[in-house]
Simulated scan of single mutants.
Amino acid sequence: MSFTVLLSALIIGHLLADFYWQPMSWVNNRNTRHFRAKKLYLHVLVHGITAAAIITWWEFSFGWQDILRISSATAIIIVTHYLIDLAKSYSSKGVVPFIVDQLAHLLVILILTMWLSDNSEFFTIVWQWLITPSTLWLLCGYLLVLNPSAVFIRMMLERLTAGFSTTGSLPAAGQSIGMLERVLMLTFILLDQFAGVGFLLAAKSVFRFGDLSASKDKKLTEYVMLGTLLSVTVTLFIGLAVNALIAI
């Protein structure tokens, strides 16, 4: 309980300080001036104050009311946040540096939470969640709708549409869209929200209608329909199978 409270509170504080209390001008200033950016130090100070307030509240509510621990944890947040953001300012801009940056911050928060709570609650929660059959079947389901399903659908389409070319589209765009589509559909199926599957298919049809109606190539229309129906069929089968296995 205390571990979960502190972890969630620190994550909320991080999200507020990083995405709501940091204007874009601060980000631009950091990316152009790096360690000379005054806004970087101001941003780190905001994080430090936010973390200090959360940790102080937690220490006096669930912890040992230790001022030294509060100071140490706040200092770690400030120093690590400064180093991580400084490193990010020198990196190329894009999704990967952004994800690595956020994962690094979250890892620091997780380690600090484990140290402050000073118990094995984290490992107990994770282990009890991982070893349940439902979690393992869910993992199998999501793994199946990604690459294995993509390979199966590609093989089926190659067999049914031999000699058909999809030149002109983005490289691997269809496969990436298909994976996202199947992940969303599987999630809806596992939540017993089949209406969500229908909404997803309807939304996709609206976006693709213009391309298909404007195209004079009947093969393109058939190719898209085959791909969509195969994707839906495979995902429905996997989702229903996972639900049945979880219910056993």
Rank of each mutant, 00 (worst) to 15 (best):
L170T: 14
I189A: 04
L68I: 13
T166D: 05
M179H: 07
M24C: 15
R69Q: 08
L201S: 06
M185N: 00
M179Q: 09
L220G: 00
A75W: 06
L180N: 08
L146S: 04
N243Y: 02
F3V: 04
V151T: 09
L220T: 02
T32H: 14
I78Q: 01
G178H: 04
A9F: 13
T135Q: 03
L190K: 10
I109P: 05
S89E: 10
R182L: 06
A37S: 15
K93Q: 12
W127F: 14
G210Q: 15
S72F: 12
T233H: 11
I109N: 09
A162C: 05
L130D: 10
I99R: 05
R159E: 13
L143R: 00
S213C: 06
N31P: 09
R208V: 00
L10M: 13
V206C: 07
L16I: 14
S61V: 08
A53G: 09
K39L: 04
L226C: 03
Y41M: 00
A75P: 01
K93F: 11
W57G: 06
H14A: 13
A150K: 05
L170R: 10
A52M: 12
D18G: 03
T135H: 02
F19V: 09
N243W: 01
F194V: 15
L130T: 12
T228M: 08
L107V: 15
L16R: 09
M185I: 04
I49S: 10
F164N: 02
L212V: 02
Y90M: 14
L144A: 12
K88G: 03
I84N: 03
G198E: 05
A75L: 13
L112V: 07
I153T: 13
G210T: 15
Y20T: 07
E222H: 01
R182P: 00
I177Q: 04
P171K: 05
I177D: 04
K38H: 04
I77T: 09
D192K: 15
A52K: 01
L136T: 00
A203E: 05
I76A: 12
A241T: 11
I246W: 01
G239R: 03
M24D: 15
L107E: 13
K218N: 06
P23Y: 11
I67R: 07
K39E: 09
M179Y: 09
P148K: 01
L116Q: 11
S205R: 09
T132M: 09
L86Q: 05
G141K: 04
A202V: 09
L245I: 12
S215D: 10
Y142D: 01
L86A: 04
L184M: 08
I238C: 05
M225C: 10
P148Q: 02
L240S: 01
D85G: 03
A162F: 13
S71K: 11
D192Y: 12
L15W: 14
A247L: 03
L7Q: 08
K219Y: 04
G63L: 02
F62P: 00
T74L: 02
V108M: 08
